[in-house]
């Protein structure tokens, strides 16, 4: 593929103490493609996403978005790039001191100087897009079920129509039906906005529903990358053991350090 990828990562490393969590990650995510990153707990998936989001500063390597290395940009330019990103956190990470509508419209109020009335109206529309009644906007996050919190988190992520969307374990803690509903909404939003997406997940059914492409992270490196539909028959020993949940294989769980 000759076209410039939306996100290009090269040689990304990050170490915490003596533990090297990312050990030279190379990854390309083409524009308007949904990339699923799988890997065991502690394999560095969340750290990878947090590096791209600018929440964690990597030790080395480059993260290019639209051909610009965001790690070398001035803070204001980094802020502008971040404005193109929406993120759905694993536990929702909704602001519990704000009502739902203000959570959804938070990015709009922060970036676009819309009035509170306009933001509230827009929040109602976005809540409808993720299958919630606009009246839910008056509730507080603590009053919502887990599935509703995920929907509100998704609504907040897509509110500013971002060019890039990130999902951290979007179906964790949900029953299978609700998980499928959330996956459907994610796919609908990503395709509808034409966004480039990266999702990290342990849920293989979810990975195949959400992803166009998939990559597996193991010991801080990308050990396989291919079509998400081939996750279950990749031919890679590491991926096969992980996706089929086999105890025996090359991946040895670190029970103690």
């Amino acid at each position: 593929m000759s076209a410039q990828p939306k996100i290009r990562i090269r040689g990304l490393t990050k170490q915490f103490g003596d533990k090297r969590v990312l050990d030279g990650i190379d990854l390309d995510v083409p524009t308007a493609t949904s990339m699923v990153v799988i890997g065991g707990s502690g394999s560095g998936k969340s750290v990878l996403v947090k590096c791209i989001l600018g929440i964690i500063e990597p030790d080395d390597g480059s993260i290019e978005i639209d051909g610009k290395d965001v790690l070398k940009l001035e803070p204001a330019a980094q802020e502008a790039v971040r404005g193109e990103i929406g993120m759905l956190f694993q536990n929702g990470a909704l602001f519990d001191s704000l009502p739902v509508w203000e959570n959804v419209a938070f990015g709009l109020l922060a970036r676009h100087s819309v009035t509170r009335e306009q933001a509230r109206a827009r929040a109602g529309e976005i809540l409808t897009e993720v299958g919630l009644a606009p009246s839910v906007g008056d509730l507080y996050p603590a009053e919502l079920s887990g599935g509703m919190q995920k929907r509100v988190g998704l609504a907040r992520a897509i509110a500013a129509k971002p060019a890039m969307l990130f999902f951290d374990e979007p179906t964790t803690g949900l029953d299978p039906i609700m998980g499928a509903v959330i996956d459907g909404l994610i796919t609908q939003c990503v395709k509808g906005l034409g966004s480039t997406a990266i999702a990290i997940t342990h849920d293989m059914a979810s990975a195949r529903r959400i992803g166009d492409q998939a990559a597996m992270l193991y010991k801080g490196r990308i050990v396989w990358q291919g079509e998400a539909q081939h996750l279950m028959d990749s031919g890679n020993e590491l991926v096969d053991q992980f996706t089929h949940g086999r105890r025996e294989g090359p991946i040895q769980m670190e029970l103690r350090r």
Binding site: L53, G54, I55, E79, M87, F89, A93, G107, F166
Partner: peptide
Amino acid sequence: AELGTMRVTDQIDALTTLST
């Protein structure tokens, strides 16, 4: 307690992703 809860539930990271 409020900021600590926000930290451990990723709400502070969420602020960063929302240009704040």
